[in-house]
């Protein structure tokens, strides 16, 4: 089977596992495409492809979210590819959470080559506004998505009682089914 490992879907699934946000939640930011393109351009297609192949392997070998997490720690951070893939995976999380791209570590840049726009920066105003960190902490990005007068007077939500159980996975499975 000659599947190309460069689809936005693969990227979003991996992102979902890395960030703890469901595929739907990530799509709901409207940034799946642009984050995909951003990362691919910054690290280069071949390295990016390597990351997604690795993800595909983890996905195929893991039955549960727990197994996928273990797989990520082992295959992306702990394997012989760790120093190549680990920093990218971390940057993907930073990108989704903060809307910032962080310059790749020095050693990485030396060893694998640096793109011209591999600079620490806010990727876009939208990426900032849609940063996942605010949702994770049940707050709102400064100067955007304001919650309305007096909303702060109420106790913060505690979504994790409910949310923890259902974060992501199901859509991933649905898609897997379709593609096999």
């Amino acid at each position: 089977m000659s599947k190309r490992y460069d689809s936005v879907d693969d990227f979003v699934e991996l992102s979902s596992e890395l960030t703890g946000f469901s595929v739907a939640e990530l799509e709901g930011t409207g940034l799946a495409e642009s984050h995909f393109t951003e990362v691919r351009e910054l690290v280069g297609e071949r390295i990016f492809g390597r990351l997604l192949i690795t993800w595909d392997k983890i996905r195929n070998e893991s039955k549960s979210s727990k197994a996928r997490q273990t797989g990520i720690h082992k295959e992306i951070f702990g394997s012989e590819w760790g120093d190549l893939l680990g920093p990218i995976a971390l940057n993907i999380v930073r990108l989704w959470y903060l809307g910032n791209w962080f310059q790749m570590p020095r050693e990485w840049r030396h060893k694998y080559g640096a793109a011209a726009n591999d600079q620490t920066r806010v990727v876009s105003a939208e990426a900032y506004r849609e940063g996942l960190v605010w949702d994770a902490i049940c707050a709102y990005p400064t100067a955007a998505k304001q919650p309305g007068f007096g909303s702060w007077a109420f106790p913060p939500e505690d979504p994790y009682e409910k949310k923890a159980a259902t974060s992501r996975t199901t859509k991933t499975r649905a898609r897997k089914k379709k593609s096999t």
Partner: peptide
């Protein structure tokens, strides 16, 4: 949307 799907949850 399917009952267990993340979109359904949203």
């Amino acid at each position: 949307f399917k009952k267990s799907s993340p979109t359904r949850k949203l």
